[in-house]
Design a protein around this nucleic acid. Sequence first.
RNA 1: GGUCCGGUAGCUCAGCUGGAUAGAGCAACAGCCUUCUAAGCUGUGGGUCUCGGGUUCGAAUCCCGACCGGAUCACCA
Length: 631
Amino acid sequence: MNSLEQQLTTLAKAAVKALYGLDATDAQIQLQKTRPEFEGNITLVVFPFVKLARKAPQAVGDEIGNWLLVNGEGLVAKFNAVQGFLNLSISDAFWVNQLQAIDADETYGRFERPSEKAFPFREGEGVGSPLMMVEYSSPNTNKPLHLGHVRNNLLGYSIAKIQEANGWKVVKTNIVNDRGIHICKSMLAWLKFGNGETPESSGKKGDHLIGDYYVRFDKEYKAQIAELMAAGKDEETAKREAPLMLEAQEMLRKWEANDPEVRALWAKMNEWVYAGFDETYKRMGVSFDKIYYESNTYLEGKSEVEKGLASGAFYRREDGSVWADLTKDGLDEKLLLRSDGTSVYMTQDIGTAKLRFQDYPIDKMVYVVGNEQEYHFKVLSILLDRLGFPFGKELVHFSYGMVELPNGKMKSREGTVVDADDLMDKMVADAREISKDKVHTLRSFPEGDKNTLQGITEAEADEIARKVGLGALKYFILKVDPRKNMLFNPAESIDFNGNTGPFIQYTYARIQSVLRKSYSPKDGLAAERSYSEAVLQPSGRSLEDKELALIQRLTEYPAAVRTAGEDFSPAVICNYAYALACDFNSFYHDLSILNEPDESKRALRLLLARNVAKVLQSAMALLGIEMPERM
RNA sequence: GGUCCGGUAGCUCAGCUGGAUAGAGCAACAGCCUUCUAAGCUGUGGGUCUCGGGUUCGAAUCCCGACCGGAUCACCA
């Protein structure tokens, strides 16, 4: 809640008390932004007092409005009441003060401590920021990253940034699923059909190379199944008895038995994949503070399960498998160790959790994982709790929706996946193409104008295209409510106009251009210095509507950061940034900044522009989107 | 079948702790570059907020029930 709302809440309570003798609760003081079709900035809903005041809504509105005008300490400049809505116009002096406060605040939109609502389970002890660990990405090492991973990575990174802004110390982590039958399939196919191919020999990225052999395995495996079925076997049997599958399983056993040859091959191929992933992550702009590998954590999980067995939290069946009975929690029974003693996904997650809490004083653990695993995390939460881990109950599964294609889900085997590297390539190439067109259509600027794209080097143009292309992609994905499934149509390219990342980047670039010009010899460096001083003397004039609307929008930024943090929603930041950019473009269109003759007005507008740029950049940084200085 | 999530304009999505005549973008159409970057601005058309009940001054928003779509309920991850 910003200070305006706090002040008005206090005033409104006093008004209701003075006029009707009522002690209003916070919930009864409903303030909302005034709709644009009415005059005013902020609106008090008077319905909650109508019944007790025993008067018509209109009369109540007028009475409270008058009271605020007289007793509002100059905050309320005027008002109008329409039906049950009291629209208040706040004084220009207040808004100008707000703008100056924002300008002076180097960390505007960042908080020292998490809000009450988001505060951790551990009793507030000592000072400093509580620690949140955010797990995201978590790839398998048998195929390259696709669009589904892109959504995960962007959400995970953005959530980490947003929570940092909300006062958490954040550790970004990744659990790499580097072992299991899927890896063995790729290894086996490579051994059989690879002819020693390496990333160096073929020029392929390591993750793509491994992915190709994973696909190859599937193809050969299917052929074997068909063969066996043609020979009279039923499908079940054929799948089970296909030689390739038997070999893959044998390889997995050898891996678990530490067979030196299998381990060496596994290590080599994983290195290829990691090199490929690193490149993709770097390009995407995401990073991790600590990486865990499943091959290092699954044994820890097993031993935790053994402990749980000893303590009676779990039980063993006759065939040797270990289970947790969750029927008391309204769930099923859950397998933790197979009858042959090998571990499952859940076992590994228990081990990973344990290691993490050994490594860090975690107050809150967040898993960025798709919504198809909701059941898994519900179970994990209960199991960790049963094993005596204090964080178990409080873990957060940040469950996000699938990315769907027009004909349904992406399926690796059907070749309908949208590859992450290809997609980024295309976005950047599109951005480069579009910017070429722009340069040709800019008729109104002289050749070599440094504030347009003319006269810049190829390398600079490439860098701009990189920022814009990735900005378009990231915004496209992050603007959708994370909980919802979203649709991506590969046949339609992602927009660069309208409610998009480039729109916001463009707004920023325009402002930078204005600011650069404001420092030109013509205006003198005095322009910079005169911002604050000139603004302080508004020479009795009143703010333009569009100036006021922009300032008001700027004051809403901290609330947007709060909400985004509490709701785990980068989309909230997108919506805010878009609204701010819209407001600025409208202002920019109607009012001149540098050509404004009145020094005080010019200074205010420059101050406004500079802070819009600051907030846009801050907001986009929370989304992992970089801003170009010109475009 | 049980549980969870979703259904808003032709398309993609906001709005959902109840508030004024439900908003953007794309697509379509019509305007605006001698003036700070036209990736922009302005305007037109486009809606039974899936359907039916309920709660109340007021429901896209909350409750109940249908219908439709998705996810999940593995000795997969």
